[in-house]
Design a protein around this nucleic acid. Sequence first.
RNA 1: GCGCUCGUAGCUCAGUUGGAUAGAGCACCGGAUUCCUAAUCCGGGGGUCGCAGGUUCGAAUCCUGCCGGGCGCACCA
Length: 596
Amino acid sequence: MQSTIELLRQRVTAAVAGAFGLAEAEINPLLNRSQDDKFGDYQSNCAMGLAKKLGKNPREVAQRIVDHLDLANICSAPEIAGPGFINLRLEPKYIATQLASVPPAANAWEDRLGIDKAANPVVAAVDLSSPNLAKEMHVGHVRSTILGDCVARILEFEGHEVHRINHVGDWGTQFGMLLAYLRRTQPHVLESPDDLHLDDLEKFYVAAKTLYDADPEFAETSRQTVVELQSQQPEVMAVWRAFCYESLRHCHEIYDRLDVRLEDRGESFYRDMLPDIVRQFEKKGLAKESDGALCVFLDGFTARDGEPLPMMIRKSDGGYNYDTTDLAAIYHRIETLQAKRLIYLVGIAQKQHFQMLFAAARKIGWGGSDVELVHLGFGNMLAADGTPFKTRDGGTIKLKNLLDEAFTRAKDVIVESAADDERRAQFDEKTVNEIAAAISVGAVKYFDLSHNLSSDYKFDWDTMLSLEGNTAPYMLYAYARVRSIGRKAGIDFATLPTDAPYILEHDAEIRLARTILRFAETVHQVAADLRPNVLTDYLYDLSKAFSLFYDRKHGVRIIDAEPEPIRLSRLRLCDLTARTLRLGLSLLGIKTVEQM
RNA sequence: GCGCUCGUAGCUCAGUUGGAUAGAGCACCGGAUUCCUAAUCCGGGGGUCGCAGGUUCGAAUCCUGCCGGGCGCACCA
């Protein structure tokens, strides 16, 4: 099914071509959704620019476009407004026809509402989560994990082959530091590394880091130990493996809880490729020695002192750091995985690093113009007062604790805010826990995804768990209410007659229907621009449209609506609403519940 | 110092090829419940889009300067 916006773009383009004898390829119809419903559903803003180019009156240009515009059975008569806007409003009949063409769901888990996959699927590599091992996951990993999962889900839905790569820090200085520390203070630990628990690992890590920062001699020893690790001495490797195993075990407990699936492919994965990466740069004459280190200098990057800022691909001690590893990762993703879209969910603070990485990759010629390198640099999660989000004593907030608190608070919301004690009394402990789990994880995810990805945002429990506004609980509640209609009516939505027409007469019906229709183009847009908050905004619109449709005063009757064709039409609208909400939320990585 | 980025209603935030009277939620005020989940819905007040210039038919959006905040800047990642 072709999305409406694409259809209209084609029609307007054809009209402009016909009206002014231009080639379609050079026409931009400037067609987008209207900002305000009162202007219709879509608007084309191309008349003004065209008028200027042709030296004509913009409203006359708009009129000529409209005269050539064939929108039979799609829109009501186009209106020209203001300086030359062309406003288009979809006919309810068109909306009804489009909705009727949505195929029934194969089952709840494979329902794609008839939305086309991308015509040219590609391989995409999404770099997400990527914690440093030896430490518990903390709030700093929330955004990369949640945003990356969402991006991956949307690209998968579009039919692309997605590698979800967890680029864990398992090969850097922190392991040298940890090993050196244990050798010095806890040598017995190294004798039976498999017994080590994450809590101890974290404790040792913190102590080692403190020592590293305070004691230059220890720092030097740590760096030497990294070299030992990187030269892969067997006894060091055995300890390293045990550390990684224990850390990753913990990470995956969190991922399971978040319903995030990914492939662990840490920095160590690239360790044997690093010398070759360096050789490639040397061979092309792009590497220069500077202060004993081997560096790549790129145009336009300067350091504090105004001197050129290098990418260091080999340290003066012969070791490698993350520039080289990240270059190897790009090379691997392009050359081995054949990825055409490399997407990195890493904080905005790393922007310059990625600019340099991408510039280096372009300079050495990896991947052609068909390879897209994207750093989705996200903003920070802040406390309510705008300071970094920390525990009261300034420590890091562990992700596990955050999720635990979310769960407790979600449970409180369920218990405290319910108006219907009778219904809630039917929920047993297990049901309450399931609902609280869905709401809590959903709330944290939704709050994160609903902000502009690159903005900082203030973490606020009350807002994210509110039943009002653009929140997960509101969305989940709307879904539960739709599903409840089916239960109350004694109807399985899936068995509604597929030939029952949609009858769109009441304002609330039309609004709901046209909002549902907008889903396909919204998903395509999010896949193209990688902006999850566009999808959350859409789902909020949809929930609002449903609430209005269902409203006592402003909405319509459903279960007891008459005559039968209207009742069926409304029940089918409910079904489509539920399916759209469920699919939309699933693309955000959020699970729905049948009742709340 | 150089570079990047942000500044939108009392608060939290949307606003992406420059488009119409700048939107939403919270809070505040008012209204709706014999009725399918009112955990909802409807209405209202509230703005010099940091400031000043510029480009344009048209600027929150692009350019310049200034003010204020955040971040980055070679052997950590």
